[in-house]
Amino acid sequence: MTVALSAKEVAAKLEQQLPSGIIESNEGSILVNSEFLPDIIAFLKTTPEFDFDYLNYITAVDYLDYFELVYQLTSMNHNHSLVIKTRCYGRENPSVPSIVDLFVAANPQEREIYDLMGIRFEGHPNLKRMFLWEGFEGHPQRKDYL
């Protein structure tokens, strides 16, 4: 059984490393400052205690006031998982740093989110529309699109 790590405990350890990276944590997930997202994920990936080598999925949810990005990480060796969330604000040009350097799996998913939700991933090598064509207006997955 994949153990969902206690987000509070992991957050306490992360705070020692990156004090300003954590915004809050509850039982299920850690909300992090998007600026520090790649550092936090890199730390979780490389620390032997966590060893998160597999990215389950990335997704984005539009809450109108902000966009929430959800990352679920799993360690195949330890068989445990963790959910990281981050937020970005503004409807015009919301952006978060890309984690393609850490996980190849992030590449198509970040492109998809850019296409449908309109969130820019800074540092993505090939950030362009994926399902819709170049020149399509708007981002249909947003709540205010239709």
């Binding site: 949810v61 799996a105 590449n107 198509p108 998809e112």
Partner: peptide, 27 residues
């Protein structure tokens, strides 16, 4: 996988599908 978000209404607020085939193609 399915990531579903509810706002206590009769339809999903968000329903994300973790696509197997898309990610298998990444390799």
């Amino acid at each position: 996988g399915f990531y579903v978000v509810s706002d206590n209404s009769i339809s999903p607020y968000r329903c994300h599908i973790r696509p197997t085939s898309l990610l298998n193609l990444a390799a």
